[in-house]
């Protein structure tokens, strides 16, 4: 019945067709591919360009220098500590946001997500105003003999500040998707709220919690602006990998590139980890 010359769908055996996901690319206007490709190039090209700058023969030496190892070790330790802190504080926050209703909740959610859109340096200034020696809490902490500024604690605080929203939105989304029907059933079976949280709610959103934690870890690892503003920069104490990269640019661009490559590799690993898990679920 089709008019002569009209494009015909290629003959595909029904069995083969059934085994494949339906292709919908044919419905896209072709010009869409051009800006899409440009966008992809904008993201991929700089990473490729970075690779061309890497001094491969000196790479091991550059990565194993004392300052690099100190920065990497500090970054891994602080990012791990921040992730733990994010889980301890972010899980209850996500539950409160997803499972309860109170006045001002929408406002609170918006405020909690603020570090996502805030320039990190602003976060650093805000943290200084809070935990600095003359800050809101800093002066009281000082009396107690606790000094936050210029310490590794400050790095962890700065990283937690910027990474927390990642965990909270990831987990809150999982909680909303999971719904509360399982929790209702558990309650009618006689489980108290704490038991429901421990034995039903948390296990159900464990995948969301895991991906949220990985994202938070990655964000903490890449933290720069808030750290340099709030924590300062001292090898082994507050100079994390991104700060080391920024400093190395002054004297040893090759080392900066080598360390950048290291961060890119970690970032790619994180994305693969999270996306791979999403693909399966």
């Amino acid at each position: 019945m089709s008019p002569v010359g009209a494009p015909r769908a290629p003959e595909v055996p029904a069995a083969r067709r059934a085994g494949r996901a339906p292709r919908t690319t044919g419905d896209l206007p072709r010009w869409v591919w051009l800006p899409a490709a440009l966008g992809a190039a904008l993201v991929v090209l700089p990473v490729v360009a970075l690779l061309t700058r890497v001094d491969w023969s000196d790479l091991p030496a550059l990565l194993m220098s004392e300052s690099s190892r100190a920065a990497l070790s500090l970054s891994l330790r602080t990012a791990a500590a921040s992730t733990v802190l994010c889980v301890l504080l972010g899980v209850p926050m996500a539950f409160v946001l997803a499972r309860s209703r109170f006045p001002g909740q929408a406002l609170l959610r918006a405020l909690v997500l603020l570090p996502l859109v805030l320039p990190p340096v602003v976060g650093g200034i805000a943290l200084l105003a809070t935990f600095g020696r003359r800050g809101l809490l800093g002066s009281s902490l000082e009396v107690l003999g606790v000094q936050v500024a210029f310490s590794t604690t400050a790095v962890v605080l700065a990283q937690t500040f910027v990474a927390l929203p990642f965990l909270v939105i990831s987990l809150e989304g999982s909680l909303r998707t999971a719904g509360h029907r399982y929790e209702t059933v558990a309650a009618t079976l006689g489980a108290r709220p704490s038991t429901v949280l421990r034995r039903v709610s948390l296990p159900l959103v464990l995948p969301g919690l895991a991906s949220g934690a990985v994202l938070a870890f990655a964000r903490a690892l890449g933290e720069f602006g808030a750290t340099i503003t709030f924590a300062g920069s001292l090898q082994g104490v507050t100079r994390t990998l991104p700060l080391e990269i920024y400093l190395q640019r002054e004297t040893d661009p090759d080392a900066a590139v080598a360390l950048s490559l290291l961060l890119v590799v970690v970032a790619v690993l994180v994305i693969v980890l999270v996306r791979g898990r999403e693909g399966r679920s």
Binding site: T184, V185, R199
Partner: peptide
Amino acid sequence: PPYARGVGLLAQEPLLFPHLDVVANVAFG
């Protein structure tokens, strides 16, 4: 509160806890 009522509920959907096996589901109460 629901957990202190001694009132059980069987809904239209079974809503078995997906992370627990069958025995653990039944033993939950």
